Deep mutational scan, measured.
Amino acid sequence: PVYLSVKADNSMFIGNDPVTDETMITALNALTEGKKDTTIFFRADKTVDYETLMKVMDTLHQAGYLKIGLVG
């Protein structure tokens, strides 16, 4: 499974590897070998604001990742 996490300080990680807004999709493409039907499990600290969550989800959708599971 692929886990994308947003921490309380808005830092992002794919698994244990830090990513930025600019590198997130490139890292996901490498990890999933470009398979856009891969489910991305998205988790965020409860203090992360809604705007940040939606920005990340919008970026995922624009890149073609449509299977996003929200996890606690």
Rank of each mutant, 00 (worst) to 15 (best):
P1K: 09
V2F: 05
V2C: 03
V2P: 04
Y3F: 11
Y3W: 13
L4Q: 01
L4Y: 02
L4E: 01
L4H: 00
L4M: 07
S5T: 15
S5C: 10
S5W: 13
S5Q: 13
S5N: 11
V6A: 02
V6M: 14
V6S: 01
V6Y: 08
V6D: 00
V6C: 03
V6N: 01
K7R: 09
K7E: 10
A8T: 09
A8P: 06
D9T: 06
D9W: 07
D9Y: 07
D9R: 04
D9G: 07
N10Y: 12
N10E: 07
N10L: 14
N10F: 09
N10I: 03
S11C: 08
S11R: 12
S11Q: 12
S11A: 09
M12V: 11
M12R: 03
M12I: 13
M12G: 00
F13E: 04
F13N: 03
I14Y: 03
I14T: 01
I14D: 01
G15A: 05
G15I: 03
G15E: 05
G15V: 02
N16A: 12
N16W: 07
N16R: 08
N16Q: 10
N16M: 10
D17Q: 13
D17N: 11
D17T: 14
P18A: 10
P18Q: 13
P18H: 08
P18L: 13
P18T: 07
V19D: 00
V19E: 01
T20N: 09
T20Q: 05
T20K: 04
T20A: 04
T20V: 04
D21Q: 12
D21L: 14
E22D: 12
E22R: 05
E22Y: 07
E22K: 10
E22C: 04
T23V: 04
T23E: 08
M24L: 15
M24N: 00
M24D: 01
M24R: 00
M24H: 01
M24C: 03
I25C: 03
I25W: 03
I25V: 11
I25H: 02
I25R: 02
T26Y: 11
T26I: 11
T26A: 15
T26S: 15
T26D: 14
T26N: 10
L28N: 00
L28P: 00
L28A: 01
N29I: 10
N29C: 04
N29K: 06
N29G: 05
N29R: 04
A30H: 10
A30S: 10
A30E: 12
A30N: 11
A30W: 07
L31W: 08
T32A: 03
T32N: 03
T32M: 06
T32V: 06
E33P: 03
E33I: 06
E33W: 06
E33A: 10
E33C: 09
E33D: 14
G34N: 09
G34S: 07
G34L: 06
G34D: 06
G34T: 05
G34I: 02
K35Q: 10
K35L: 06
K35V: 08
K35S: 08
K35F: 07
K35A: 09
K36E: 04
K36V: 06
K36R: 11
K36P: 05
K36I: 04
D37Y: 05
D37E: 09
D37S: 08
D37A: 06
T38Y: 07
T38E: 07
T38K: 05
T38D: 03
T38N: 05
I40D: 00
I40A: 00
I40L: 03
I40N: 00
I40H: 00
I40K: 00
F41T: 05
F41K: 06
F41M: 12
F41G: 02
F41Y: 13
F42W: 02
F42A: 03
F42S: 00
F42L: 15
F42P: 00
R43A: 14
A44E: 03
A44I: 14
A44G: 05
D45S: 05
D45E: 11
D45A: 07
K46F: 09
K46V: 12
K46H: 11
K46S: 14
K46N: 13
T47V: 09
T47F: 10
T47S: 14
V48M: 05
V48A: 09
V48Q: 03
D49V: 07
D49Y: 05
D49N: 12
D49L: 13
Y50S: 11
Y50R: 13
E51D: 11
E51V: 11
E51T: 11
T52M: 11
T52R: 12
T52Q: 09
T52K: 13
T52S: 06
T52V: 14
T52H: 08
L53I: 15
M54V: 11
M54T: 11
K55D: 04
K55S: 07
K55Q: 09
K55I: 06
K55P: 02
V56L: 14
V56I: 14
V56P: 00
M57S: 04
M57C: 06
M57D: 00
M57A: 05
D58Q: 13
D58H: 12
D58K: 14
D58C: 07
D58M: 12
T59A: 14
T59N: 11
T59V: 14
T59F: 09
L60C: 01
L60T: 00
L60G: 00
L60A: 01
H61M: 12
H61L: 09
H61Y: 12
Q62L: 11
Q62A: 13
Q62R: 14
Q62V: 06
Q62M: 10
A63G: 07
A63Y: 06
A63C: 02
A63S: 06
G64M: 02
G64T: 00
G64D: 02
G64P: 00
G64C: 03
Y65E: 00
Y65P: 00
Y65H: 01
Y65D: 00
L66G: 07
L66M: 12
K67G: 04
K67I: 10
K67W: 09
K67L: 08
K67N: 13
I68H: 03
I68M: 04
I68E: 02
G69L: 13
G69I: 15
G69Y: 15
G69N: 15
G69D: 15
L70D: 05
L70I: 15
L70H: 09
V71T: 10
V71K: 06
V71P: 07
V71R: 04
G72M: 07
G72Q: 12
